[in-house]
Design a protein around this nucleic acid. Sequence first.
DNA 1: GCAGGCGATACCCCGGCGGTATCGTCGAGG
DNA 2: CCTCGACGATACCGCCGGGGTATCGCCTGC
Lengths: 277, 277
Amino acid sequence: METRELRYFVAVAEELHFGRAARRLGMAQPPLSRAIAQLERRLGVTLLDRTSRGVSLTAAGGVLLREGRAAIAAVEAAERRTRRAGPEHGLVLATKAAASAELLAKLLDRYAAEPGAVPVQVELCGIAEQGPMLRDGRADVALLHLPFDDVSGFDTETLTVEIQVAIVPAGHELTTRAELTLAELAGSDLPMARWPDGAGSYRPGPGPEVRDHAQLLQLIGLGRATTVLPDSVRQNLREGLAAVPVVDAQRVTTVIAWPPHSRSRAVADLVRTATAL
Amino acid sequence: METRELRYFVAVAEELHFGRAARRLGMAQPPLSRAIAQLERRLGVTLLDRTSRGVSLTAAGGVLLREGRAAIAAVEAAERRTRRAGPEHGLVLATKAAASAELLAKLLDRYAAEPGAVPVQVELCGIAEQGPMLRDGRADVALLHLPFDDVSGFDTETLTVEIQVAIVPAGHELTTRAELTLAELAGSDLPMARWPDGAGSYRPGPGPEVRDHAQLLQLIGLGRATTVLPDSVRQNLREGLAAVPVVDAQRVTTVIAWPPHSRSRAVADLVRTATAL
DNA sequence: GCAGGCGATACCCCGGCGGTATCGTCGAGG
DNA sequence: CCTCGACGATACCGCCGGGGTATCGCCTGC
Protein backbone atom coordinates (compact mmCIF):
# COMPACT_ATOMS: atom_id res chain seq x y z
CA MET A 1 0.00 0.00 0.00
CA GLU A 2 1.37 3.40 -0.92
CA THR A 3 0.90 6.48 1.21
CA ARG A 4 -0.75 8.14 -1.78
CA GLU A 5 -3.50 5.53 -1.69
CA LEU A 6 -3.86 6.00 2.05
CA ARG A 7 -4.17 9.76 1.68
CA TYR A 8 -6.81 9.30 -1.00
CA PHE A 9 -8.80 6.91 1.11
CA VAL A 10 -8.58 9.05 4.23
CA ALA A 11 -9.80 12.07 2.26
CA VAL A 12 -12.80 10.17 0.90
CA ALA A 13 -13.53 8.57 4.27
CA GLU A 14 -13.49 11.95 5.96
CA GLU A 15 -15.57 13.73 3.35
CA LEU A 16 -17.81 10.76 2.57
CA HIS A 17 -18.05 12.34 -0.86
CA PHE A 18 -15.78 11.59 -3.83
CA GLY A 19 -16.20 14.98 -5.43
CA ARG A 20 -15.33 16.99 -2.34
CA ALA A 21 -12.46 14.64 -1.50
CA ALA A 22 -11.07 15.03 -5.02
CA ARG A 23 -11.28 18.80 -4.73
CA ARG A 24 -9.48 18.65 -1.39
CA LEU A 25 -6.77 16.51 -2.95
CA GLY A 26 -6.45 18.83 -5.92
CA MET A 27 -7.43 16.24 -8.51
CA ALA A 28 -10.42 15.16 -10.57
CA GLN A 29 -13.05 12.77 -9.25
CA PRO A 30 -12.71 9.84 -11.70
CA PRO A 31 -9.07 8.92 -10.95
CA LEU A 32 -9.94 9.08 -7.27
CA SER A 33 -12.86 6.68 -7.70
CA ARG A 34 -10.59 4.37 -9.63
CA ALA A 35 -7.80 4.53 -7.07
CA ILE A 36 -10.16 3.62 -4.24
CA ALA A 37 -11.67 0.77 -6.25
CA GLN A 38 -8.17 -0.51 -6.97
CA LEU A 39 -7.24 -0.28 -3.30
CA GLU A 40 -10.33 -2.29 -2.38
CA ARG A 41 -9.47 -4.88 -5.00
CA ARG A 42 -5.90 -5.21 -3.76
CA LEU A 43 -7.00 -5.49 -0.14
CA GLY A 44 -9.83 -7.82 -1.03
CA VAL A 45 -12.13 -5.82 1.24
CA THR A 46 -14.98 -3.40 0.62
CA LEU A 47 -14.13 -0.11 2.31
CA LEU A 48 -17.06 2.05 1.26
CA ASP A 49 -20.73 1.43 0.64
CA ARG A 50 -21.74 3.51 -2.38
CA THR A 51 -25.24 4.51 -3.12
CA SER A 52 -26.05 6.83 -5.94
CA ARG A 53 -26.70 9.46 -3.27
CA GLY A 54 -23.53 9.18 -1.25
CA VAL A 55 -20.97 7.10 0.52
CA SER A 56 -20.70 5.44 3.92
CA LEU A 57 -17.90 3.57 5.66
CA THR A 58 -17.93 -0.19 6.14
CA ALA A 59 -16.42 -1.70 9.29
CA ALA A 60 -13.19 -2.41 7.41
CA GLY A 61 -13.27 1.16 6.10
CA GLY A 62 -13.48 2.44 9.65
CA VAL A 63 -10.44 0.39 10.59
CA LEU A 64 -8.48 1.67 7.62
CA LEU A 65 -9.47 5.25 8.39
CA ARG A 66 -8.10 5.00 11.92
CA GLU A 67 -5.04 2.92 11.06
CA GLY A 68 -4.37 4.83 7.87
CA ARG A 69 -4.29 8.16 9.68
CA ALA A 70 -1.78 6.69 12.13
CA ALA A 71 0.31 5.27 9.29
CA ILE A 72 0.32 8.58 7.40
CA ALA A 73 1.31 10.34 10.61
CA ALA A 74 4.17 7.88 11.06
CA VAL A 75 5.43 8.50 7.53
CA GLU A 76 5.21 12.25 7.95
CA ALA A 77 6.94 11.97 11.31
CA ALA A 78 9.76 10.03 9.68
CA GLU A 79 10.05 12.73 7.04
CA ARG A 80 10.09 15.63 9.49
CA ARG A 81 12.46 13.98 11.92
CA THR A 82 14.85 13.17 9.11
CA ARG A 83 14.74 16.74 7.86
CA ARG A 84 15.55 17.94 11.34
CA ALA A 85 18.39 15.44 11.81
CA GLY A 86 21.04 17.76 10.45
CA PRO A 87 24.10 18.72 12.51
CA GLU A 88 22.48 19.44 15.91
CA HIS A 89 19.27 20.94 14.73
CA GLY A 90 17.98 21.45 18.26
CA LEU A 91 14.95 20.06 20.04
CA VAL A 92 11.34 21.13 19.78
CA LEU A 93 9.41 20.97 23.05
CA ALA A 94 5.63 21.25 22.79
CA THR A 95 3.63 22.55 25.72
CA LYS A 96 0.39 24.31 26.48
CA ALA A 97 0.52 28.06 26.77
CA ALA A 98 -1.23 27.65 30.09
CA ALA A 99 1.33 25.25 31.54
CA SER A 100 3.32 26.00 34.61
CA ALA A 101 5.85 28.64 33.69
CA GLU A 102 8.17 27.97 36.61
CA LEU A 103 8.45 24.28 35.83
CA LEU A 104 9.27 25.06 32.22
CA ALA A 105 11.75 27.82 33.10
CA LYS A 106 13.54 25.63 35.62
CA LEU A 107 13.68 22.75 33.14
CA LEU A 108 15.09 24.88 30.35
CA ASP A 109 17.66 26.49 32.66
CA ARG A 110 18.87 23.23 34.10
CA TYR A 111 19.01 21.55 30.73
CA ALA A 112 20.91 24.43 29.17
CA ALA A 113 23.53 23.98 31.88
CA GLU A 114 24.01 20.31 30.95
CA PRO A 115 27.10 19.42 28.99
CA GLY A 116 26.17 18.77 25.38
CA ALA A 117 22.86 20.61 25.58
CA VAL A 118 21.35 21.59 22.24
CA PRO A 119 19.07 24.60 21.62
CA VAL A 120 15.48 23.97 22.68
CA GLN A 121 12.69 25.59 20.72
CA VAL A 122 9.53 25.89 22.81
CA GLU A 123 6.37 25.40 20.80
CA LEU A 124 3.34 26.78 22.61
CA CYS A 125 0.32 25.03 21.23
CA GLY A 126 -3.40 25.02 21.84
CA ILE A 127 -5.47 22.62 23.86
CA ALA A 128 -4.42 19.02 23.28
CA GLU A 129 -2.28 19.86 20.28
CA GLN A 130 0.89 18.48 21.84
CA GLY A 131 -0.05 14.86 21.28
CA PRO A 132 -0.48 15.23 17.53
CA MET A 133 2.68 17.35 17.31
CA LEU A 134 4.66 14.65 19.05
CA ARG A 135 3.09 11.94 16.96
CA ASP A 136 3.79 13.52 13.61
CA GLY A 137 7.33 14.65 14.34
CA ARG A 138 6.72 18.39 14.63
CA ALA A 139 7.95 18.08 18.21
CA ASP A 140 10.59 15.89 19.84
CA VAL A 141 9.27 16.03 23.38
CA ALA A 142 6.18 17.46 25.10
CA LEU A 143 4.74 18.37 28.46
CA LEU A 144 1.31 16.77 28.81
CA HIS A 145 -1.31 16.97 31.48
CA LEU A 146 -3.23 13.93 32.70
CA PRO A 147 -6.07 13.19 32.65
CA PHE A 148 -6.69 15.72 29.85
CA ASP A 149 -4.10 14.63 27.30
CA ASP A 150 -3.82 11.24 25.68
CA VAL A 151 -0.42 9.66 26.34
CA SER A 152 -1.10 6.30 24.73
CA GLY A 153 1.75 5.37 22.46
CA PHE A 154 4.31 7.57 24.19
CA ASP A 155 6.95 6.96 26.80
CA THR A 156 6.42 9.28 29.77
CA GLU A 157 7.89 10.29 33.11
CA THR A 158 5.78 11.96 35.78
CA LEU A 159 7.03 15.38 36.81
CA THR A 160 4.43 16.85 39.17
CA VAL A 161 1.02 16.07 40.64
CA GLU A 162 -1.09 19.09 41.61
CA ILE A 163 -4.45 19.71 43.16
CA GLN A 164 -6.78 22.08 41.34
CA VAL A 165 -8.01 25.42 42.60
CA ALA A 166 -11.02 27.56 41.80
CA ILE A 167 -10.20 31.00 40.46
CA VAL A 168 -12.59 33.64 41.84
CA PRO A 169 -12.63 37.43 42.06
CA ALA A 170 -10.74 38.79 45.07
CA GLY A 171 -13.21 39.78 47.70
CA HIS A 172 -15.81 37.28 46.58
CA GLU A 173 -17.49 35.47 49.44
CA LEU A 174 -15.87 32.17 48.37
CA THR A 175 -12.41 33.59 49.14
CA THR A 176 -13.23 33.30 52.84
CA ARG A 177 -13.34 29.54 52.49
CA ALA A 178 -10.25 27.42 53.10
CA GLU A 179 -11.48 24.89 50.54
CA LEU A 180 -14.42 24.07 48.28
CA THR A 181 -16.16 21.21 46.56
CA LEU A 182 -17.14 21.21 42.91
CA ALA A 183 -20.78 21.14 43.98
CA GLU A 184 -20.35 24.23 46.13
CA LEU A 185 -18.63 26.02 43.28
CA ALA A 186 -21.37 25.05 40.85
CA GLY A 187 -23.93 26.28 43.37
CA SER A 188 -22.34 29.71 43.69
CA ASP A 189 -23.39 32.79 41.72
CA LEU A 190 -20.33 32.47 39.46
CA PRO A 191 -20.97 30.42 36.30
CA MET A 192 -18.25 28.08 35.07
CA ALA A 193 -16.55 29.39 31.94
CA ARG A 194 -16.75 27.03 28.96
CA TRP A 195 -13.76 26.03 26.80
CA PRO A 196 -13.97 24.89 23.21
CA ASP A 197 -13.54 21.15 22.77
CA GLY A 198 -11.11 19.51 20.37
CA ALA A 199 -13.17 20.46 17.32
CA GLY A 200 -13.35 24.11 18.39
CA SER A 201 -17.02 24.11 19.32
CA TYR A 202 -18.56 24.73 22.73
CA ARG A 203 -20.76 22.23 24.48
CA PRO A 204 -24.05 23.86 25.38
CA GLY A 205 -24.70 25.10 28.90
CA PRO A 206 -24.65 28.25 30.99
CA GLY A 207 -21.51 30.24 31.53
CA PRO A 208 -19.58 32.46 29.14
CA GLU A 209 -17.54 31.01 26.29
CA VAL A 210 -13.83 31.76 26.41
CA ARG A 211 -11.02 31.20 23.96
CA ASP A 212 -7.88 31.85 25.95
CA HIS A 213 -6.45 32.40 29.38
CA ALA A 214 -6.34 36.18 29.29
CA GLN A 215 -9.99 36.37 28.31
CA LEU A 216 -10.89 33.90 31.04
CA LEU A 217 -9.04 35.74 33.81
CA GLN A 218 -10.49 39.03 32.65
CA LEU A 219 -14.02 37.62 32.93
CA ILE A 220 -13.32 36.22 36.38
CA GLY A 221 -11.90 39.55 37.51
CA LEU A 222 -15.18 41.15 36.41
CA GLY A 223 -17.11 38.68 38.54
CA ARG A 224 -18.75 37.10 35.51
CA ALA A 225 -17.26 33.62 35.65
CA THR A 226 -15.11 31.14 37.52
CA THR A 227 -13.04 28.13 36.56
CA VAL A 228 -10.96 25.32 38.01
CA LEU A 229 -7.25 25.23 37.17
CA PRO A 230 -4.11 23.45 38.38
CA ASP A 231 -2.61 24.84 41.57
CA SER A 232 0.48 26.18 39.82
CA VAL A 233 -1.44 29.06 38.22
CA ARG A 234 -1.55 30.71 41.68
CA GLN A 235 2.04 31.80 41.12
CA ASN A 236 1.00 34.08 38.28
CA LEU A 237 -2.42 35.33 39.38
CA ARG A 238 -2.82 39.01 38.69
CA GLU A 239 -4.32 41.34 41.19
CA GLY A 240 -8.04 41.06 41.68
CA LEU A 241 -8.07 37.27 41.50
CA ALA A 242 -7.91 34.68 44.23
CA ALA A 243 -7.60 30.90 44.31
CA VAL A 244 -9.42 28.44 46.59
CA PRO A 245 -8.49 24.74 46.65
CA VAL A 246 -11.18 22.44 45.29
CA VAL A 247 -10.90 19.25 47.27
CA ASP A 248 -12.80 16.92 45.00
CA ALA A 249 -11.41 18.03 41.65
CA GLN A 250 -9.20 15.50 39.88
CA ARG A 251 -5.46 15.78 40.49
CA VAL A 252 -3.55 17.05 37.47
CA THR A 253 -0.40 15.16 36.61
CA THR A 254 2.22 16.85 34.46
CA VAL A 255 4.31 14.37 32.51
CA ILE A 256 7.12 14.72 30.02
CA ALA A 257 6.46 12.55 26.97
CA TRP A 258 8.48 11.48 23.95
CA PRO A 259 8.06 9.07 21.07
CA PRO A 260 9.05 5.53 21.98
CA HIS A 261 12.42 4.25 20.77
CA SER A 262 13.71 7.80 20.60
CA ARG A 263 17.40 7.16 20.75
CA SER A 264 18.41 10.79 20.57
CA ARG A 265 20.88 11.74 23.25
CA ALA A 266 19.36 15.22 23.48
CA VAL A 267 15.90 13.86 24.32
CA ALA A 268 17.34 11.48 26.87
CA ASP A 269 19.27 14.32 28.52
CA LEU A 270 16.23 16.56 28.64
CA VAL A 271 14.10 13.84 30.18
CA ARG A 272 16.76 13.06 32.74
CA THR A 273 17.00 16.72 33.65
CA ALA A 274 13.24 16.96 33.96
CA THR A 275 12.86 13.97 36.25
CA ALA A 276 15.68 15.26 38.45
CA LEU A 277 13.90 18.59 39.05
CA MET B 1 7.19 10.46 0.91
CA GLU B 2 5.86 7.22 -0.55
CA THR B 3 6.26 3.88 1.17
CA ARG B 4 8.05 2.63 -1.93
CA GLU B 5 10.79 5.19 -1.36
CA LEU B 6 10.98 4.21 2.30
CA ARG B 7 11.30 0.54 1.45
CA TYR B 8 14.05 1.34 -1.01
CA PHE B 9 15.94 3.42 1.50
CA VAL B 10 15.59 0.88 4.29
CA ALA B 11 16.90 -1.85 1.98
CA VAL B 12 19.95 0.19 1.05
CA ALA B 13 20.54 1.31 4.63
CA GLU B 14 20.40 -2.26 5.84
CA GLU B 15 22.60 -3.70 3.12
CA LEU B 16 24.89 -0.67 2.85
CA HIS B 17 25.28 -1.76 -0.75
CA PHE B 18 23.17 -0.59 -3.69
CA GLY B 19 23.66 -3.74 -5.71
CA ARG B 20 22.62 -6.15 -2.98
CA ALA B 21 19.73 -3.92 -1.97
CA ALA B 22 18.52 -3.81 -5.56
CA ARG B 23 18.70 -7.59 -5.79
CA ARG B 24 16.75 -7.88 -2.54
CA LEU B 25 14.13 -5.52 -3.93
CA GLY B 26 13.94 -7.42 -7.20
CA MET B 27 15.04 -4.51 -9.35
CA ALA B 28 18.13 -3.19 -11.10
CA GLN B 29 20.67 -1.00 -9.38
CA PRO B 30 20.46 2.23 -11.42
CA PRO B 31 16.79 3.04 -10.70
CA LEU B 32 17.49 2.39 -7.05
CA SER B 33 20.42 4.81 -7.01
CA ARG B 34 18.26 7.36 -8.74
CA ALA B 35 15.35 6.87 -6.35
CA ILE B 36 17.57 7.37 -3.30
CA ALA B 37 19.17 10.45 -4.83
CA GLN B 38 15.71 11.85 -5.56
CA LEU B 39 14.61 11.13 -1.99
CA GLU B 40 17.65 12.97 -0.66
CA ARG B 41 16.93 15.91 -2.94
CA ARG B 42 13.30 16.08 -1.85
CA LEU B 43 14.21 15.87 1.83
CA GLY B 44 17.08 18.29 1.41
CA VAL B 45 19.26 15.99 3.51
CA THR B 46 22.15 13.65 2.70
CA LEU B 47 21.22 10.17 3.89
CA LEU B 48 24.20 8.15 2.70
CA ASP B 49 27.90 8.83 2.37
CA ARG B 50 29.04 7.18 -0.84
CA THR B 51 32.59 6.21 -1.48
CA SER B 52 33.53 4.29 -4.58
CA ARG B 53 34.00 1.28 -2.29
CA GLY B 54 30.75 1.32 -0.41
CA VAL B 55 28.11 3.21 1.48
CA SER B 56 27.69 4.41 5.07
CA LEU B 57 24.81 6.05 6.90
CA THR B 58 24.82 9.71 7.88
CA ALA B 59 23.17 10.79 11.13
CA ALA B 60 20.04 11.76 9.21
CA GLY B 61 20.17 8.41 7.43
CA GLY B 62 20.20 6.67 10.79
CA VAL B 63 17.13 8.59 11.84
CA LEU B 64 15.31 7.72 8.63
CA LEU B 65 16.28 4.07 8.97
CA ARG B 66 14.71 3.87 12.43
CA GLU B 67 11.70 6.05 11.70
CA GLY B 68 11.21 4.58 8.25
CA ARG B 69 11.04 1.05 9.61
CA ALA B 70 8.40 2.20 12.09
CA ALA B 71 6.44 3.98 9.37
CA ILE B 72 6.54 0.95 7.07
CA ALA B 73 5.41 -1.21 9.97
CA ALA B 74 2.52 1.19 10.58
CA VAL B 75 1.44 1.04 6.95
CA GLU B 76 1.66 -2.75 6.89
CA ALA B 77 -0.23 -2.92 10.16
CA ALA B 78 -2.98 -0.77 8.66
CA GLU B 79 -3.12 -3.10 5.68
CA ARG B 80 -3.26 -6.30 7.71
CA ARG B 81 -5.78 -4.97 10.21
CA THR B 82 -8.02 -3.80 7.41
CA ARG B 83 -7.82 -7.17 5.69
CA ARG B 84 -8.80 -8.81 8.94
CA ALA B 85 -11.67 -6.41 9.58
CA GLY B 86 -14.22 -8.51 7.77
CA PRO B 87 -17.39 -9.79 9.49
CA GLU B 88 -15.95 -11.03 12.83
CA HIS B 89 -12.66 -12.30 11.63
CA GLY B 90 -11.51 -13.35 15.10
CA LEU B 91 -8.64 -12.18 17.26
CA VAL B 92 -5.00 -13.16 17.15
CA LEU B 93 -3.31 -13.39 20.55
CA ALA B 94 0.48 -13.59 20.54
CA THR B 95 2.31 -15.19 23.45
CA LYS B 96 5.53 -16.97 24.24
CA ALA B 97 5.45 -20.75 24.11
CA ALA B 98 6.97 -20.71 27.57
CA ALA B 99 4.26 -18.51 29.07
CA SER B 100 2.06 -19.63 31.89
CA ALA B 101 -0.35 -22.18 30.48
CA GLU B 102 -2.93 -21.90 33.28
CA LEU B 103 -3.21 -18.16 32.92
CA LEU B 104 -3.75 -18.52 29.19
CA ALA B 105 -6.20 -21.39 29.53
CA LYS B 106 -8.24 -19.55 32.14
CA LEU B 107 -8.25 -16.39 30.02
CA LEU B 108 -9.41 -18.20 26.90
CA ASP B 109 -12.11 -20.11 28.80
CA ARG B 110 -13.49 -17.06 30.53
CA TYR B 111 -13.42 -14.98 27.38
CA ALA B 112 -15.14 -17.68 25.34
CA ALA B 113 -17.97 -17.60 27.88
CA GLU B 114 -18.46 -13.84 27.37
CA PRO B 115 -21.43 -12.75 25.30
CA GLY B 116 -20.25 -11.67 21.87
CA ALA B 117 -16.92 -13.47 22.10
CA VAL B 118 -15.14 -14.03 18.78
CA PRO B 119 -12.77 -16.91 17.97
CA VAL B 120 -9.26 -16.39 19.37
CA GLN B 121 -6.31 -17.71 17.46
CA VAL B 122 -3.31 -18.22 19.74
CA GLU B 123 -0.01 -17.48 18.03
CA LEU B 124 2.90 -19.02 19.89
CA CYS B 125 5.99 -17.10 18.95
CA GLY B 126 9.64 -17.10 19.85
CA ILE B 127 11.51 -14.93 22.30
CA ALA B 128 10.44 -11.30 22.03
CA GLU B 129 8.55 -11.81 18.79
CA GLN B 130 5.23 -10.67 20.27
CA GLY B 131 6.15 -6.99 20.20
CA PRO B 132 6.84 -6.91 16.46
CA MET B 133 3.74 -9.02 15.78
CA LEU B 134 1.60 -6.57 17.68
CA ARG B 135 3.25 -3.60 16.05
CA ASP B 136 2.80 -4.75 12.49
CA GLY B 137 -0.74 -6.01 12.83
CA ARG B 138 -0.10 -9.74 12.69
CA ALA B 139 -1.56 -9.90 16.21
CA ASP B 140 -4.35 -7.96 17.89
CA VAL B 141 -3.28 -8.51 21.48
CA ALA B 142 -0.31 -10.11 23.24
CA LEU B 143 0.92 -11.39 26.58
CA LEU B 144 4.27 -9.80 27.37
CA HIS B 145 6.71 -10.27 30.22
CA LEU B 146 8.43 -7.38 31.90
CA PRO B 147 11.27 -6.60 32.17
CA PHE B 148 12.15 -8.78 29.15
CA ASP B 149 9.75 -7.45 26.55
CA ASP B 150 9.51 -3.91 25.31
CA VAL B 151 6.05 -2.46 25.88
CA SER B 152 6.80 1.07 24.72
CA GLY B 153 4.09 2.23 22.36
CA PHE B 154 1.46 -0.17 23.64
CA ASP B 155 -1.38 0.11 26.10
CA THR B 156 -1.04 -2.53 28.81
CA GLU B 157 -2.73 -3.95 31.88
CA THR B 158 -0.80 -5.90 34.50
CA LEU B 159 -2.07 -9.44 35.03
CA THR B 160 0.39 -11.13 37.40
CA VAL B 161 3.65 -10.44 39.20
CA GLU B 162 5.76 -13.49 40.00
CA ILE B 163 9.01 -14.19 41.74
CA GLN B 164 11.55 -16.27 39.86
CA VAL B 165 12.78 -19.70 40.85
CA ALA B 166 15.91 -21.64 40.08
CA ILE B 167 15.30 -24.95 38.30
CA VAL B 168 17.64 -27.63 39.57
CA PRO B 169 17.78 -31.44 39.38
CA ALA B 170 15.71 -33.17 42.06
CA GLY B 171 18.01 -34.38 44.80
CA HIS B 172 20.60 -31.72 44.13
CA GLU B 173 21.98 -30.18 47.30
CA LEU B 174 20.37 -26.84 46.48
CA THR B 175 16.90 -28.40 46.80
CA THR B 176 17.40 -28.53 50.56
CA ARG B 177 17.44 -24.73 50.64
CA ALA B 178 14.24 -22.77 51.22
CA GLU B 179 15.59 -19.95 49.06
CA LEU B 180 18.66 -18.84 47.16
CA THR B 181 20.43 -15.74 45.92
CA LEU B 182 21.71 -15.33 42.40
CA ALA B 183 25.25 -15.29 43.76
CA GLU B 184 24.74 -18.62 45.50
CA LEU B 185 23.31 -20.11 42.34
CA ALA B 186 26.22 -18.82 40.29
CA GLY B 187 28.60 -20.26 42.86
CA SER B 188 27.08 -23.74 42.62
CA ASP B 189 28.39 -26.55 40.43
CA LEU B 190 25.51 -26.04 37.96
CA PRO B 191 26.35 -23.63 35.11
CA MET B 192 23.64 -21.22 33.90
CA ALA B 193 22.23 -22.24 30.54
CA ARG B 194 22.57 -19.56 27.84
CA TRP B 195 19.73 -18.40 25.57
CA PRO B 196 20.19 -16.89 22.14
CA ASP B 197 19.68 -13.13 22.08
CA GLY B 198 17.40 -11.31 19.68
CA ALA B 199 19.74 -11.89 16.73
CA GLY B 200 19.96 -15.63 17.41
CA SER B 201 23.55 -15.63 18.63
CA TYR B 202 24.83 -16.56 22.09
CA ARG B 203 26.80 -14.23 24.27
CA PRO B 204 30.06 -15.86 25.27
CA GLY B 205 30.47 -17.46 28.68
CA PRO B 206 30.36 -20.81 30.39
CA GLY B 207 27.24 -22.94 30.46
CA PRO B 208 25.57 -24.91 27.67
CA GLU B 209 23.71 -23.19 24.84
CA VAL B 210 20.02 -24.06 24.58
CA ARG B 211 17.40 -23.31 21.95
CA ASP B 212 14.13 -24.22 23.62
CA HIS B 213 12.44 -25.17 26.83
CA ALA B 214 12.45 -28.93 26.34
CA GLN B 215 16.17 -28.93 25.65
CA LEU B 216 16.78 -26.75 28.70
CA LEU B 217 14.79 -28.92 31.08
CA GLN B 218 16.44 -32.03 29.72
CA LEU B 219 19.87 -30.60 30.42
CA ILE B 220 18.87 -29.59 33.92
CA GLY B 221 17.49 -33.05 34.58
CA LEU B 222 20.88 -34.43 33.59
CA GLY B 223 22.56 -32.19 36.12
CA ARG B 224 24.37 -30.22 33.42
CA ALA B 225 22.78 -26.83 33.82
CA THR B 226 20.42 -24.63 35.76
CA THR B 227 18.34 -21.57 34.96
CA VAL B 228 16.07 -19.01 36.55
CA LEU B 229 12.44 -18.91 35.42
CA PRO B 230 9.16 -17.36 36.56
CA ASP B 231 7.45 -19.13 39.43
CA SER B 232 4.54 -20.36 37.32
CA VAL B 233 6.67 -22.98 35.58
CA ARG B 234 6.53 -24.98 38.84
CA GLN B 235 3.04 -26.09 37.86
CA ASN B 236 4.39 -28.01 34.89
CA LEU B 237 7.72 -29.30 36.12
CA ARG B 238 8.31 -32.86 35.07
CA GLU B 239 9.67 -35.41 37.45
CA GLY B 240 13.35 -35.12 38.26
CA LEU B 241 13.27 -31.34 38.45
CA ALA B 242 12.83 -29.07 41.45
CA ALA B 243 12.38 -25.34 41.91
CA VAL B 244 13.93 -23.09 44.56
CA PRO B 245 12.91 -19.45 44.96
CA VAL B 246 15.62 -16.96 44.09
CA VAL B 247 15.07 -14.01 46.39
CA ASP B 248 17.08 -11.39 44.56
CA ALA B 249 16.02 -12.19 40.99
CA GLN B 250 13.88 -9.54 39.33
CA ARG B 251 10.13 -9.99 39.61
CA VAL B 252 8.48 -10.98 36.33
CA THR B 253 5.35 -9.06 35.43
CA THR B 254 2.95 -10.55 32.91
CA VAL B 255 0.96 -7.89 31.07
CA ILE B 256 -1.64 -7.98 28.37
CA ALA B 257 -0.81 -5.46 25.65
CA TRP B 258 -2.62 -4.05 22.65
CA PRO B 259 -2.02 -1.30 20.11
CA PRO B 260 -3.13 2.09 21.39
CA HIS B 261 -6.43 3.48 20.11
CA SER B 262 -7.65 0.00 19.41
CA ARG B 263 -11.38 0.54 19.44
CA SER B 264 -12.29 -3.05 18.69
CA ARG B 265 -14.94 -4.38 21.02
CA ALA B 266 -13.36 -7.84 20.92
CA VAL B 267 -9.99 -6.56 22.18
CA ALA B 268 -11.69 -4.52 24.88
CA ASP B 269 -13.67 -7.56 26.02
CA LEU B 270 -10.59 -9.76 26.10
CA VAL B 271 -8.64 -7.21 28.11
CA ARG B 272 -11.50 -6.78 30.54
CA THR B 273 -11.74 -10.53 30.99
CA ALA B 274 -7.99 -10.76 31.55
CA THR B 275 -7.84 -8.05 34.18
CA ALA B 276 -10.78 -9.64 36.01
CA LEU B 277 -8.95 -12.98 36.34
C1' DG C 1 49.36 -0.58 -14.14
C1' DC C 2 45.60 -3.21 -14.62
C1' DA C 3 41.49 -5.57 -13.36
C1' DG C 4 37.49 -5.68 -10.82
C1' DG C 5 33.89 -3.83 -8.03
C1' DC C 6 30.74 -0.18 -7.10
C1' DG C 7 27.83 3.75 -7.73
C1' DA C 8 26.41 7.33 -11.22
C1' DT C 9 24.91 8.63 -15.76
C1' DA C 10 22.64 8.23 -20.35
C1' DC C 11 19.01 6.76 -22.82
C1' DC C 12 14.75 4.23 -23.82
C1' DC C 13 10.23 2.18 -23.13
C1' DC C 14 5.93 1.26 -21.20
C1' DG C 15 2.59 1.14 -17.39
C1' DG C 16 -0.18 3.65 -14.74
C1' DC C 17 -1.78 7.97 -13.03
C1' DG C 18 -4.45 11.86 -13.91
C1' DG C 19 -7.27 14.43 -17.17
C1' DT C 20 -11.90 15.18 -19.99
C1' DA C 21 -16.25 13.49 -21.60
C1' DT C 22 -20.01 10.78 -20.71
C1' DC C 23 -23.03 7.28 -18.75
C1' DG C 24 -26.20 4.93 -15.23
C1' DT C 25 -28.84 5.43 -11.29
C1' DC C 26 -31.39 7.08 -7.74
C1' DG C 27 -34.06 10.65 -5.23
C1' DA C 28 -36.59 14.97 -4.95
C1' DG C 29 -40.00 17.95 -6.65
C1' DG C 30 -43.64 19.65 -9.53
C1' DC D 1 -45.19 10.06 -13.39
C1' DC D 2 -41.80 12.36 -15.42
C1' DT D 3 -37.90 15.32 -15.32
C1' DC D 4 -33.93 17.23 -13.50
C1' DG D 5 -29.99 17.16 -10.86
C1' DA D 6 -26.47 15.09 -8.03
C1' DC D 7 -23.16 11.58 -7.62
C1' DG D 8 -20.23 7.79 -8.59
C1' DA D 9 -18.63 4.68 -12.44
C1' DT D 10 -16.84 3.98 -17.01
C1' DA D 11 -14.38 5.02 -21.37
C1' DC D 12 -10.70 6.83 -23.46
C1' DC D 13 -6.43 9.53 -23.97
C1' DG D 14 -1.88 11.71 -23.11
C1' DC D 15 2.17 12.03 -20.61
C1' DC D 16 5.20 11.64 -16.74
C1' DG D 17 8.08 8.90 -14.30
C1' DG D 18 9.66 4.48 -12.73
C1' DG D 19 12.27 0.70 -14.28
C1' DG D 20 15.18 -1.51 -17.75
C1' DT D 21 20.02 -1.93 -20.38
C1' DA D 22 24.46 -0.12 -21.55
C1' DT D 23 28.15 2.37 -20.12
C1' DC D 24 31.10 5.52 -17.60
C1' DG D 25 34.19 7.23 -13.77
C1' DC D 26 36.56 6.23 -9.82
C1' DC D 27 38.83 3.99 -6.35
C1' DT D 28 41.30 -0.12 -4.56
C1' DG D 29 44.03 -4.05 -4.23
C1' DC D 30 46.99 -7.26 -6.40
